[in-house]
Computed example of a mutant assay.
Amino acid sequence: MENKPYILIVEDDRPIRNFIAAAVSSQGYKYIETDKGNEAISLSMSNNPDLIILDLGLPDIDGIEVISKVREFSDVPIIIVSARANERQKVEALDKGADDYLIKPFGIGELLARIRVSLRHSMINKDKEEILSTFKVRQLVIDFDKRRVILNNEEIHLTPIEYKILSLLCRYSGKVLTHSFIIREVWGTSFGSETQSLRVFMASLRRKIEKDPAQPEYIYTEVGVGYRLIDE
Rank of each mutant, 00 (worst) to 15 (best):
I7S: 05
I9S: 03
V10D: 00
D12V: 08
R14V: 13
R14E: 11
I16N: 02
F19Y: 09
V24F: 00
Q27P: 08
G28M: 11
K30L: 13
Y31S: 12
I32H: 05
T34A: 04
T34L: 04
D35H: 08
G37I: 10
N38Q: 12
E39G: 08
E39R: 05
L43M: 07
S44F: 05
S44C: 14
S44L: 11
M45D: 11
M45Q: 12
L56T: 03
L58G: 00
I61E: 04
D62Q: 05
D62P: 02
I64T: 07
I64F: 07
E65H: 03
I67F: 01
V70M: 03
F73T: 07
S74T: 08
V76Y: 00
I78D: 00
I79W: 00
S82D: 03
A83H: 10
N86R: 13
Q89T: 06
K90R: 12
K90A: 10
K90D: 10
E92I: 14
L94G: 10
D99G: 06
Y101G: 06
Y101W: 07
L102G: 12
P105S: 15
P105K: 14
F106P: 02
I108S: 15
E110N: 08
L111F: 08
L111T: 04
L112G: 05
I115H: 01
I115K: 01
R116M: 09
V117S: 01
V117D: 00
S118I: 00
S118C: 06
S118T: 01
I124L: 14
I124W: 03
I124D: 08
N125H: 04
K126R: 15
K126C: 15
D127W: 09
K128S: 15
F135A: 03
F135S: 02
K136N: 05
L140G: 04
V141W: 02
I142K: 01
D143V: 15
R147N: 15
R148G: 07
E154W: 05
E154T: 10
E155V: 06
I156K: 07
H157D: 05
E162I: 15
E162A: 10
Y163F: 15
Y163M: 15
I165Y: 03
L166T: 03
C170W: 10
C170M: 07
R171L: 08
R171D: 04
Y172T: 12
S180A: 11
R184H: 14
E185V: 14
E185R: 14
G188C: 11
T189I: 09
F191E: 10
G192L: 00
G192V: 02
E194L: 05
E194Q: 12
Q196S: 11
R199W: 09
R199S: 12
F201K: 07
F201W: 08
F201V: 10
F201T: 07
M202D: 01
A203F: 12
L205K: 04
E217D: 14
E217A: 13
G226F: 05
I230K: 04
D231W: 10
E232K: 06
